[in-house]
Design a binder for these strands. Sequence first.
DNA 1: AAAGATCGGTCAAGCGATGC
DNA 2: GCATCGCTTGACCGATCTTT
Length: 299
Amino acid sequence: MNVTLSQLKTFERIVRLGSFHAAARELRLTQPSVSQRIRELETMLRTRLFIRRGPRISLTAEGHALIEYADRLLGTAGEMIERFSTRDPLKGMLRLGLNESFALICLPDLLRRLEQRYPGIKTSVFVGDTGIVSKKLDDQELDIAVVSEPAVGPHVRLEPIGKNKLGWFARADFDVARGVLSPSDLCQFHLIVSPPTAQLHATVTQWFADAGAVPLRVSTCNSLSVTILTILHGTAIGLVPVRVMQDELERRRVRLIPVSPEVRAHRVSICYQISEFGPGLKVLVDLTKELVAQHKLFV
DNA sequence: AAAGATCGGTCAAGCGATGC
DNA sequence: GCATCGCTTGACCGATCTTT
């Protein structure tokens, strides 16, 4: 036997209303049924939940402890029911998948605005590259995602929101007298790029291949923040989204290396499960677009 | 008198065995 | 693999008992 939600609901009603009879009336049961549910709960938990003094009852210490668990579990159950009855992810745990550019620039603002509009909303944020976020979308492990050029099934809708411009960056003391660099020129330096699961990796590999160039030393890093740190330390030259480096450029801590040909920009889309699209998700899609425009994240 | 506990009965869901 | 049958178990009820 397991503890059931109906037992916890009964327990919670007795605590709130103060008697077995009142709980029975509200739950549309008979008093013996209520007594039986509590007896089963006490048997399973191997404890007494109420002190019975004739017609008066009071909670034991264990009963006080259980009411907190009961409230949490019943709250979660209620949330789950609302989430699935309304098909609205904003009524439960919202599962967000984001590329790092969006996460670094817009996420705090997005969470703040969601909190204002939906107080108490819970979010699970996954930050990752195209390959990983695409798979999670495909496996229905995410409700909505902002991702570059995803490969997803027909159950996921894509709404293009702009292009993520990419640039090669080096520490500020990099010798600018070199002028515009070709892929072959860049091959001489230690380079740092995203790992193979990322769209950026495929793009940079193609960029070198088109020029018939083979880089001598390429490191990969799945974290954009750490890649930026590596560039700031002068350890390597990195290919990262230009918008993400804007602050460092303005503070003259990094230098954008002019290259020819330019690295192809990535098309970024908002993606979501079609089955879950409704008013709630539409608000989120609009809000995401608004933030992207406001922060001039993509061109 | 009021409220919780116990008893014995009914009903429906679950589960294993069996047949197709 | 699926449908059917019969047994078991759990959920519930009304009547009644016990306690304060």
